[in-house]
Design a protein around this nucleic acid. Sequence first.
DNA 1: GTGGTCTAGACCACA
DNA 2: GTGGTCTAGACCACC
Lengths: 142, 142, 142, 142
Amino acid sequence: MTLRQSAQINLLTFHIENTSGLSPYLQLVQQITHALRLGRLKMGDRLPTVRDVASNVAINPNTVLKAYRHLEVQGLLVSRPGKGVFVARELAGPSAQDQASLRRALLRWLSQAQEAGLDAEGVQALVANTIRQHVTDQTVAS
Amino acid sequence: MTLRQSAQINLLTFHIENTSGLSPYLQLVQQITHALRLGRLKMGDRLPTVRDVASNVAINPNTVLKAYRHLEVQGLLVSRPGKGVFVARELAGPSAQDQASLRRALLRWLSQAQEAGLDAEGVQALVANTIRQHVTDQTVAS
Amino acid sequence: MTLRQSAQINLLTFHIENTSGLSPYLQLVQQITHALRLGRLKMGDRLPTVRDVASNVAINPNTVLKAYRHLEVQGLLVSRPGKGVFVARELAGPSAQDQASLRRALLRWLSQAQEAGLDAEGVQALVANTIRQHVTDQTVAS
Amino acid sequence: MTLRQSAQINLLTFHIENTSGLSPYLQLVQQITHALRLGRLKMGDRLPTVRDVASNVAINPNTVLKAYRHLEVQGLLVSRPGKGVFVARELAGPSAQDQASLRRALLRWLSQAQEAGLDAEGVQALVANTIRQHVTDQTVAS
DNA sequence: GTGGTCTAGACCACA
DNA sequence: GTGGTCTAGACCACC
């Protein structure tokens, strides 16, 4: 049994993939918006300081700043000089209950995919392709 | 049920999303590798000509060339001057049967997600986040 | 004996021959891989900037970039935006001692060839032809 | 012991390397000039027909034609319509005796290189680099 | 007509 | 200032 006692409350951790082809600053933007969508960031929450993120993720502070500014322009964040950067607006999403249920179902699917011999890249390929197909089906049906 | 009788034989269609933040040439690279992983491209298949892709997708021929060259250096494609560009190597993947099964399961999940009120971005956020969690679980467990 | 006290520390100099029939960017690729094989480039070494090479060798920066990218895809180089391009992996080769010994022997041979009246092209012809013969002998013997 | 009874008299065999980066037609040109330098082609010798070369080496006849034309322009070959293509001029080289001696010495060196662990690419790198050094030494000394 | 290469210049992301 | 990308247009090699 895996015991994971984690104090990960309200602590947002970032991660940069240099091989993904996506700009580092866009990766940060994406991770923050995802956190907003999933309800892991609530209105008024304070984000980690630019300096903290920069040192933890080993990128240039300017890059972090650019991501924060990008979201500030979109009205999702607001920076209060001397105090920090805060969540200004939440993003609509399904109820926490529905989300947990969906997440569980998806985890089961991932296990199946893994058993079928799909590696990370294979999963990525199949998911991307299937989502495309799903979207197309919708469009065609409408 | 949606019936889609399509004459999509050996026909590879590309598409560029200008909003994704990913370089156009990397989007092509990704779409080709995905096609290889999903078995939609077989060893020896000829890819659409550089000029065709460029005109269909409305990008510069050099950009297409860059994607093809990228995959050629990786040994996945081989270009024969005057003849065209061909698949040089296939990528391992699960059986077509397993894949179809996984795809169906994923489509079901997508429908559920949609009913729960998730839009495209929400799906993307949840999938990305859940895959991360799944990977982490694996790593921790090992 | 020729005494050449040179301050050639970590200094990689490129040169392009327009008459060789080989693409400029491939000439750069070759020179870098040769330097890697001969141990003149070590893991982590920084290569001259794209702009430096371009101005020194009098070619277009994009051509240099192409060579660097080629080697990056092969995993030999890694480019860190804003910092430069670095050696990511070394290439196996014989010990420096063996190499020096081989080099000395080859230099002796070259002197002999020169005395026998062979010019640069003649040397090239003989070497190419003899290497071919040597390879064929190996293949036949095995 | 390797017994190789070969009827390879005056028979010129061509070979194209698709990975070398050198144009196919230039590879042919190079191989013919090399044969001229090494005395394997004598004044008046008839070269294989364009059609033969094209079918043996699996390239387009036009490519062979281009190589022959290239050498015709240089005055090394002369084409007699309906009869074939012939050697018009020889290239100066050392005596056959000296050449055989040099070749033997070089083969010994190649064996040493191989024992030291150098593969084909390593040999190529070392030879290219050493020839460069030798040329430079000459230039400096003069 | 196919891909392959080079040039020139512009803009972006990162430090 | 570093590399990364895209565009546009030209020329070459091959079929």
